[in-house]
Amino acid sequence: MSNKLVLSSLILSTALIASTTLAGTAVINGKVTRTLIHNDGGFGGCMAQLSVDPQAALPACGGRWVTFSCTGDFTDQVSAYRSMDQAQLALATDKNVMVIIDDTRRHNGFCFATRIDVMR
């Protein structure tokens, strides 16, 4: 193989590996500090602000907020509102949460929370 072909293959392989490691999911543990219902559907319609910044785990996520996609874009609306209910429960009872976020699905730059668990 020529040096140019080897170099091109190496660059392409590195680019493919980098792109797969930049996108994905992460687990965030913290508290819910605020919740938001957006009636006109902005930000996915409902969100929770976390005490831990999701950007620390996934740089593509925007700020401390995560969306549950109550508009139904990334999940069905019933599941989204149930996730929102869990966030409100955690806020009202000052409980920790475990949130799994996905940076491949975002509303207005904020990552989609695929799961939220209220902890003891």
Results as ranks from 00 to 15, higher is better:
S2Q: 06
S2P: 03
N3A: 14
K4R: 14
V6H: 06
V6K: 11
S9W: 07
L10H: 02
I11R: 03
L12W: 06
L12S: 09
S13R: 02
A15H: 07
A15L: 14
A15S: 14
L16D: 04
I17M: 15
I17K: 11
A18K: 12
A18M: 13
S19R: 14
S19G: 10
S19K: 15
T20P: 03
T20M: 12
T21P: 04
T21R: 13
L22K: 08
A23I: 10
A23D: 03
A26E: 03
A26D: 03
V27S: 15
V27K: 14
I28A: 02
I28L: 07
G30V: 02
K31M: 10
K31W: 09
T33K: 06
T33M: 06
R34N: 15
T35M: 07
L36C: 02
L36R: 08
H38R: 07
H38S: 08
N39L: 11
N39G: 13
D40S: 06
D40G: 01
G42M: 05
G42S: 10
G44Y: 02
Q49N: 08
Q49D: 12
Q49P: 00
L50F: 01
L50E: 00
S51E: 05
V52P: 03
P54V: 04
Q55D: 09
Q55C: 04
Q55F: 06
Q55K: 15
Q55E: 13
Q55H: 11
A56F: 08
A56V: 12
A57F: 10
A57R: 11
L58F: 02
P59C: 02
A60W: 07
A60L: 15
A60H: 11
G62K: 15
G62E: 11
G63T: 02
V66P: 04
T67G: 05
F68D: 02
S69I: 01
S69D: 07
C70F: 01
T71C: 04
T75Y: 00
T75A: 08
T75C: 03
D76E: 09
Q77L: 00
Q77V: 06
V78S: 13
V78Y: 14
S79C: 05
R82W: 08
R82A: 11
S83Y: 13
D85R: 14
D85M: 12
Q86M: 14
L89Y: 12
A90C: 08
A90P: 04
L91W: 07
A92C: 03
A92L: 14
T93G: 05
T93E: 14
D94P: 00
D94E: 12
D94Q: 12
K95C: 07
N96C: 04
N96I: 00
N96T: 05
V97E: 05
V99N: 06
I101S: 01
D102C: 05
D102M: 07
D103G: 01
T104W: 11
R105S: 08
R105N: 09
H107Y: 14
H107V: 05
H107M: 11
N108H: 14
N108E: 15
G109E: 10
C111F: 03
I116P: 00
I116W: 05
D117V: 13
D117H: 12
M119T: 13
